[in-house]
Design a protein around this nucleic acid. Structure first.
Lengths: 243, 243
DNA sequence: CCATTATCTTTACATCGTAAAGATCAAATA
DNA sequence: TATTTGATCTTTACGATGTAAAGATAATGG
């Protein structure tokens, strides 16, 4: 913070004339009370506007640039406006993470639907998982590496839960057994934990640049996706697995 | 930040008489220049003292409590003293992460040495990995989930590199082939990435509490370590692996 | 013995999260 | 329809943080 960033309060007035386009475009059925109609006091759909602004700030300035005040600036409102809608920085981050989980789930679902062969269907989900994280690293960071999330918020809880359920079902389908809701065998649990850990760990290491070493030692141009595929399909040798 | 924390500047003078024990004990060959000898201007070994203070703060107040000023308070020096030794918050975090990696490597090495059977030796490293993270979650967080690390610092780079090398060698030994320094086959890379991703991902999910669901559906009292073991040893069924 | 340098403190400033009070508007109510 | 009420947004304020800059102090080397 405070990294000699000279785009403080002056930025808003210099860059944008304080929310005029969004006002004219996005607010529905607003009668012209005052003839001037500039910078109306009430936004109309500030909550969604703030979430979209947060996503923009996240993609532009990264996780460390995602502050309440920056989001308010991006949306063209006062720095205390987000508090009313999200209560807290944790609140904003949690709602943003919920948005991310919904995007994430949708991406995986559509990717699975598009697959035709069984092998493709089995690989579609992990590939889409990693692809989403690569396309939206900031969002993935919010969802999976932020301590400041409040999972008691229903929206976040539901979206994250759906993500887990989708994974567990996929594993169950792959093992050709249905997984009952309340109990698991150790082998079932191990299969789920293995799949999730593998994909999640791979993604984290990839985003942190910790796989560059490995990728650099592979034939020229080997992509992370190719390595993931090999990871998931290559025969497991060595003393650890299988007799 | 600013979470109604009423232990501000008053804490230091109230809690500790401003570094008297450390002064008398740790500073070597200090002539009694001024007869009083209270709160000497120069600490003598502040760098190490700050790192130890940082570790204490981290374990006590968590990652969000680990600030430059809090570390300075804990060490009983002015809030700007750390800057001179670490330059930056990134600098302090990076050096602390290096300390963590060294502890981490030592823990895994000693655990491997203690193992007797081949199976135990193969499981020793991942178990020690997870055990370290469980015992020092803050430290593990600094090492693996902080964006603010400067890997151009030699100490951090070396310690982290040693961690990776140890893992790669272990995989190589398990596959009964030696891994040459500069090139890898796709299967070798896949084996390394799989092992690292699995253990790292498992640890992250475990620390984030995302495995509680799974653990809760297993027989009463099944530990994370047991699940890890099953993950690493249970036969892999389903369409994905094997012919 | 003195000058230089390293170490630590003081002071200052921009930014951040958040609380509290004031302003403005939409909608319910009388 | 006029008025009140509640939701929404702004202003103001405060403590905390990272960091820069200048001053104070002690160790070191000439």
């Amino acid at each position: 913070m405070a990294k000699t960033d000279t785009k403080g309060e002056t930025a808003r007035s210099a860059r944008a004339p304080r929310r005029t386009k969004a006002t004219a475009a996005s607010r529905p059925a607003r009668r012209a009370a005052s003839a001037k109609a500039e910078t109306p006091y009430h936004h109309g759909a500030l909550r969604e506007a703030l979430l979209q602004a947060a996503e923009r700030v996240l993609e532009r300035d990264g996780l460390s640039g995602l502050t309440l005040r920056a989001v308010a600036r991006e949306a063209g409102v006062s720095h205390a406006a987000p508090t009313h809608h999200f209560g807290d920085l944790t609140g904003l981050l949690s709602e943003l993470a919920a948005v991310g989980f919904r995007q994430f789930n949708a991406a995986m679902a559509s990717s699975c639907d598009a697959a035709t062969t069984p092998l493709a269907r089995a690989l579609a989900r992990p590939k889409a998982y990693v692809a989403y994280a690569q396309a939206h690293p900031g969002m993935y960071g919010i969802m999976f590496r932020t301590e400041r999330l409040d999972y008691s918020r229903p929206s976040l809880n539901e979206a994250a839960e759906a993500s887990f359920a989708g994974l567990a079902n996929a594993i169950g389908a792959m093992r050709q057994e249905q997984i009952s809701g309340d109990t698991l065998t150790l082998n079932q649990a191990a299969a789920i934990a293995r799949a999730w850990s593998m994909v999640h760990g791979f993604t984290m290491l990839l985003l942190d640049g910790r796989l560059e070493d490995i990728l650099g030692r592979l034939p020229e141009g080997t992509t992370a996706e190719r390595l993931l595929e090999a990871m998931l399909t290559a025969p497991v040798t060595g003393k650890l697995s299988g007799p």
